[in-house]
C-alpha cells in the first residue's frame, strides 16, 4: 500500500513534467505553423524530432556524447576535488578568507570563456583546454558555498564535538563536513551548471570534439532542426548528470 502510494507520488510529477513538455512542443508547433513565430529562426518541433534519427545515424552521436561526457565527468569531479578543499582552507584561515573570498566571487561573474585563446596557446586545441577552462569556470561557486556551509555550522554542534574532545580532523570529517553538506551540494549544483555550459560552449567556440562541435557544424550548415536536436542531446546529458548528483546527495544525506 505504502509502496503503491510512493510510486504514485513519483509517477504524478513525472507525468506532469512529460505532459508539460509535450504541451509546450504542441503550442510551439502551432505558433510556427500559424506564422506567429518565424519558421526560419525556430524549426518546427516535429522536424526536430524527425531529425533525431539522422543525427544519430549520420553524425556519430554516441561517440560525440562520449567525448562531451568524458570532459564533463573529469571537469565535474575536478571542481569537487579542488573546490571543497580550497573552500575548507578559506574557512580555516580567516586572513586568507578575508583576502581572497571577494576575488573568488568576482571570478564567478567574470566571462572567463573569452580567455580561450590564452588556453589554446597553453594546452593546444585539445580536450585539456576544454577541461581546464571548464574547471576554472566552475570553481568559484563550490569554493564560496563550501566556505559558507562550514561557517554556517551551528556552534552548538561544534561545542558537542569539543566537549567530546574531538581532534580537528575528527571534527572536520564527522561534524563540520556533514553539517555543511547541504550548502556544499548547492555549490556543486551551481558549479556543475557552469561546467556543463562551459564544456559545450568551449567545444562550440574552438570547434572541437563532442556535442559542442556538432552544434557548431550543424549551425554552419544552417541545419536548424539538426542543431536543435543536438541541443536536445546536450540537455539529455545534463539531465543525466543532475539525476546522478541527486542520487549521490540522497545517499549522503538520508535526512534531507
Amino acid at each position: 500500500m505504502a509502496k503503491a502510494s510512493l510510486s504514485q507520488g513519483r509517477a504524478l510529477p513525472m507525468a506532469v513534467g512529460v505532459a508539460t513538455i509535450i504541451g509546450a512542443f504542441v503550442l510551439l508547433e502551432m505558433l510556427l505553423r500559424y506564422g506567429v513565430v518565424n519558421k526560419y529562426v525556430v524549426p518546427l518541433p516535429s522536424q526536430v524530432l524527425m531529425s533525431l534519427e539522422r543525427i544519430v545515424v549520420e553524425e556519430n552521436i554516441l561517440s560525440r556524447i562520449r567525448e562531451t561526457a568524458y570532459e564533463m565527468i573529469v571537469s565535474c569531479l575536478a571542481v569537487i576535488v579542488l573546490g571543497v578543499p580550497i573552500g575548507a582552507m578559506l574557512y580555516r584561515w580567516r586572513p586568507l578568507r578575508r583576502a581572497v573570498l571577494d576575488w573568488v566571487a568576482a571570478t564567478a561573474a567574470a566571462p572567463l570563456v573569452l580567455a580561450f585563446p590564452l588556453f589554446l596557446v597553453m594546452f593546444g586545441r585539445s580536450p585539456t583546454t576544454v577541461i581546464v577552462m571548464s574547471v576554472i569556470t566552475g570553481l568559484a561557486p563550490i569554493i564560496i558555498k563550501t566556505t559558507e556551509g562550514l561557517l554556517g555550522v551551528r556552534p552548538v554542534l561544534i561545542n558537542v564535538g569539543r566537549s567530546l574532545k574531538m581532534t580537528d580532523a575528527q571534527m572536520f570529517r564527522m561534524i563540520l563536513l556533514p553539517a555543511a553538506l547541504p550548502t556544499i551540494f548547492s555549490g556543486i549544483r551551481l558549479s556543475w551548471t557552469f561546467v556543463l555550459i562551459s564544456v559545450v560552449g568551449i567545444e562550440f567556440l574552438i570547434n572541437l570534439g563532442g556535442l559542442g562541435q556538432l552544434i557548431n557544424d550543424l549551425a554552419e550548415r544552417y541545419d536548424l532542426p539538426g542543431t536543435y536536436a543536438a541541443i536536445g542531446f546536450v540537455i539529455l546529458v545534463s539531465v543525466i548528470f543532475f539525476m546522478l548528483l541527486e542520487r549521490v546527495e540522497k545517499w549522503l544525506r538520508p535526512a534531507k
Binding site: 554542534l157 561545542n159 566537549s163 567530546l164 553539517a179 535526512a255
Partner: peptide
C-alpha cells in the same frame, strides 16, 4: 583545563546530528 572526560554536557540548543539516525 579544557573539556574533561568526566563531564558530559547537554546543551540548551538542539544538538542532535541531523544526518544521523
Amino acid at each position: 583545563a579544557g573539556p574533561h572526560k568526566a563531564v558530559g554536557m547537554v546543551f540548551q540548543e538542539e544538538s542532535t546530528f541531523p544526518w544521523r539516525n
